[in-house]
C-alpha cells in the first residue's frame, strides 16, 4: 500500500505540474498587452460613447460561410458624396469574438472619391464582422453581418 500511495502522489504532483507550467510559461512569453481588446471596449474607444446607428448606407460584403477562417474577404461600401464638406472620415473593421476585436482602421479623405475599402481578415471562429463608419460630421454608422467559420471541412 505504501508503494501504491507513493506512486499515486507522484502522479498527482506531476499532473498538477503539467497543468500549471504551460500557463505560467504562456503568461511569461506572451504578456497580454494592449493588443487584447474586447469588441465593446473597441467600440467605446472609437466612438467615445457616441450613439451608433445601424444604416443601409453602409454595405458590408462578407461570405456567409468561410471555409478557412484565416482568410476572410471583407468589403465595405459607404454611400457618400465624398465632397470636402461631407465625406467618410474613417472605416473601422471590427470583429465580435476575436482576441483583438480591431482589424483595420482606415482614414479616408475626399480624394478617395468613394467610401470603399476591401481587405482580408482572420476570424477565430463563427462571429459577426462589423463595419463602423465615421462621417465627417462626427456621426457613426454601423453594419454587421455574421460569418460562419467551418473548421475541419464538411459539417
Amino acid at each position: 500500500m505504501k508503494r501504491r500511495n507513493f506512486i499515486k502522489s507522484i502522479c498527482a504532483v506531476s499532473a498538477v505540474a503539467a497543468t500549471i507550467t504551460p500557463s505560467v510559461l504562456l503568461a511569461k512569453d506572451a504578456p497580454k498587452g494592449a493588443n487584447v481588446l474586447t469588441y465593446d471596449a473597441a467600440v467605446a474607444a472609437i466612438t467615445g460613447g457616441k450613439a451608433v446607428a445601424d444604416s443601409d448606407k453602409v454595405k458590408l460584403t462578407v461570405p456567409e460561410i468561410a471555409e478557412n477562417g484565416a482568410v476572410v474577404p471583407v468589403k465595405v461600401n459607404v454611400e457618400s458624396p465624398m465632397t470636402e464638406s461631407d465625406y467618410v472620415k474613417a472605416i473601422h473593421v471590427l470583429t465580435t469574438k476575436n482576441g483583438n476585436a480591431r482589424s483595420v482602421d482606415v482614414m479616408l479623405t475626399p480624394m478617395n472619391a468613394k467610401g470603399y475599402f476591401a481587405t482580408r481578415i482572420k476570424l477565430a471562429g463563427t462571429q459577426d464582422v462589423v463595419a463602423l463608419v465615421e462621417l465627417s460630421d462626427g456621426s457613426f454608422l454601423r453594419a454587421a453581418k455574421p460569418v460562419k467559420v467551418t473548421i475541419g471541412g464538411c459539417g
Binding site: 483595420v104 482606415v106 482614414m107 482572420k122
Partner: peptide
C-alpha cells in the same frame, strides 16, 4: 489614405 492595422489581418 492612412490605415492602422492589427494582427487580425490575414
Amino acid at each position: 489614405t492612412s490605415m492602422k492595422v492589427w494582427e487580425t489581418v490575414s
